Simulated scan of single mutants.
Amino acid sequence: MQGGTPTTRKVMVIAEPTRESAIALQYTLSHAIFEQDELILLHVGKYPSSRRNTFSTFMRRPKVGSSSAIACSDVGGGNVDFLEEMKHACKVAQPKLLVSVKRVEMEGKDKAGVILFLSKMLNIDLIFIGQRRSLSSSILGCRRPGGSMRGVEDTAEYLIENSNCNCVGVQKKGQNAGYLLNTKTHKNFWLLA
């Protein structure tokens, strides 16, 4: 902070029509972003998405004390664009927040590379991504002894390890059990919130 005015950060949430992405957005809005920040919802994938709109389904379950979860239940519908619904949830939660949506269509398999490129190009300060972990990967870990990843690399893990800015993988631990956060320096950090 210089001269009493807060600095503006560019915060990116990797947006997908999944429960994990909705959790990452929910965490970002409630714990990590300030009204002077700029929030960018980035979706990298094929269009049009034929996947069911799981964002509205997840956000319909009201969280105690959360007006954004309740307000989003009114927006639901099978053909609603999940990015516009996520943007609406942001505006309900923090009306003064500057929110933009970026869509990148891609056919290849280097989604993480595209996200890293865009984060550098847009000068992003902080990335949030919903993270899904199976029990076996949590217990055994994702890395081989030589340090390489097994099979196709997990996008969240790749971003966490290779991003120039801070990248946070977010998981929800039960209805009221808080969040499990992963960064390059802190693995499986449990936040009761």
Rank of each mutant, 00 (worst) to 15 (best):
T185Y: 11
M149E: 08
M106Y: 11
M1D: 04
E153P: 14
R51E: 14
S66W: 09
T18A: 06
S50N: 11
T54R: 07
V80E: 01
T54S: 02
S49L: 14
L192D: 15
A15C: 06
C165D: 04
G3M: 08
E38Y: 04
K184N: 10
L83P: 02
A112P: 00
A93D: 05
G65K: 12
M149H: 07
S67H: 12
K184M: 01
F128M: 04
H186P: 11
A24Y: 00
Q26N: 10
S21M: 05
K184T: 03
H88F: 15
R150M: 08
S119C: 07
R144E: 08
H43Y: 15
L192N: 14
E85W: 01
G45M: 12
S66I: 06
F58P: 08
R144T: 07
I14T: 00
R60N: 03
K102M: 09
L98A: 06
G78T: 06
G151S: 09
M86P: 04
A93N: 03
G146Y: 06
E38H: 11
K10P: 02
S66P: 06
S119N: 01
L42N: 00
T183E: 10
A156Q: 01
G77E: 05
V64P: 07
P95S: 14
S68W: 14
C167P: 06
S68R: 03
I127M: 08
L29I: 02
K111D: 01
T28M: 06
P145H: 09
I14H: 03
K46L: 13
C165N: 03
P145Q: 08
P17A: 14
Y47C: 13
I23N: 04
D110S: 14
E107S: 14
S73K: 07
S119V: 05
Q2V: 12
N176Y: 07
L135G: 12
E16P: 00
T57F: 01
G141M: 12
L29T: 01
N53S: 10
P145R: 10
S100G: 07
D154I: 12
E16C: 10
E84S: 13
R52F: 11
N164K: 05
G108V: 11
D81N: 13
F82T: 04
N79W: 10
I124V: 11
P6S: 14
G76Q: 13
D74P: 00
G147S: 08
F58S: 00
E20W: 07
I129Y: 00
Y158E: 05
P95Q: 08
M59L: 15
S21E: 00
F58L: 07
L159R: 03
